[in-house]
């Protein structure tokens, strides 16, 4: 019962924050649309639909060829996974090293002093 109450409390915080985020984004977007800084949702949707229709009518066979299973290269797929995950881990590692190494150095210096 205690756990359920806590979970509900966390979900409520999620919901409140989600509401605030949604309202703020929509507010900013509507102000930007009214000022002419960006296109409205309807304009973007119709533009995207037109672009997709043009792309489909231009080369349907080419798309099928490109996505055919014969083109699938397991080695290239694995290499892309490793490179992408490596990139993400590297980005995460930057703040880790930037914080952990100076912290441990400070701790050692403090011990010596």
């Amino acid at each position: 019962m205690k756990t359920l109450t806590r979970a509900l409390l966390i979900l409520t915080v999620f919901a409140v924050l989600a509401g605030i985020v949604t309202v703020s984004v929509n507010l900013v977007a509507s102000v930007a649309v009214s000022m002419g800084l960006i296109d409205s949702a309807e304009e973007r949707a119709s533009e995207e639909a037109a672009r997709e229709a043009a792309a489909q009518s231009a080369s349907p066979a080419q798309d099928e060829e490109r996505n055919s299973p014969e083109d699938f290269n397991l080695f290239a797929y694995a290499a892309r996974w490793i490179l992408s995950l490596g990139k993400d881990v590297f980005i995460i590692a930057i703040p880790v090293f930037a914080i952990v190494i100076p912290k441990s150095l400070f701790a050692k210096l403090r011990k010596r002093a």
Binding site: I91, I92, A93, V96, I99
Partner: peptide
């Protein structure tokens, strides 16, 4: 989030 995860990991290292 990627950067925040890095800082979060560092603080719980």
């Amino acid at each position: 989030a990627l950067l925040l995860l890095g800082v979060h990991t560092a603080l719980h290292w």
